[in-house]
Amino acid sequence: MDDDFIELDRVEKVFDVRRKTGFLRRERRSVRAVDSLSFTVARGEMVGYIGPNGAGKSTTIKMLTGILTPSGGRLRVAGIDPSRERTRLARRIGVVFGQRTTLWWDLPLIDSYRLAHRMYRIPEVRYRENLDRCVELLELGELLEVPVRQLSLGQRMRGDIAAALLHDPEVLYLDEPTIGLDVISKSKVRGFLRELNAERGTTVLLTTHDLQDIEQLCSRVMVIDHGRLMYDGALAGLHEVGESERTLVVDLERELPPIEAAPARVVRVEGPRQWLAFPAAQSAAELVARIAARYPLLDLSVREPDIEAVIARMYAGGTAQDEAEKAVS
């Protein structure tokens, strides 16, 4: 049971989409949002669930949380069929929707927690312990009496995460938990999740567009596209499969011919600024050192490939050249 804490066996989700084709005519067709999806997640794992928009990510999460009923296949979370026992499951999971707060807008933050306390019937002692812990680790102490509408995006996100954890969920679903946050908030959120997972053994499943979320949190990544699992494994492996490239942006003292530093190659030149694409697996430091030795450098920065680009490369959707150009534009 602990190895297949979350278990999907050929799960499908088919939507009927009606499209207007004329003034009154409508065309009906089926869209397979999730197509024969099978995977298991062990208790205590921290998994990144990624894919382009419309790939079936959120449909999967909605089925896992009991919001949507699968059209076929078998799905279990902690031994519970989410669609049949939605409320029973609700007591055992925590959900954070990144762009949609569940906190009470006009009330002090603490009031949202008091509601959770009663709605989930959390025993007094547990509630105190969990609240104190979240307050400490997420640095919410100053914010508890502040109306939610006055919180910054980052503060609100931390508040939302705490709200999802007061009832000791065994699994936490996070949908874009760091979207729109500043660097400091991001790192606070990530640090907290790491600790939660390590200490409590909470299983975490997160969807994100931010590769750093995955890099810093998840030992395992699942990539979904067109409703199918395209990759399941470590993040490093994903880079290999996708042969992804990072980009080095170099500001030279003056306009110069394209830098030569194989295997990196110049993909764009704009006055004294040049963009070089190089394999993600290669060390940036070594490349920088080589360039610095031969060219008059003013400034430089390294850009990580974003998930979209990595995934796009996985399907050989275009030549390597195209992708590198997309990454710099």
């Binding site: 208790r43 205590g44 000791d168 969920p169 409590r200 053994g201």
Partner: peptide, 14 residues
Amino acid sequence: MVDAGARWAAEEVP
């Protein structure tokens, strides 16, 4: 590894 305290949550509601 599982936190023992979490078990209360699984109980059915009166």
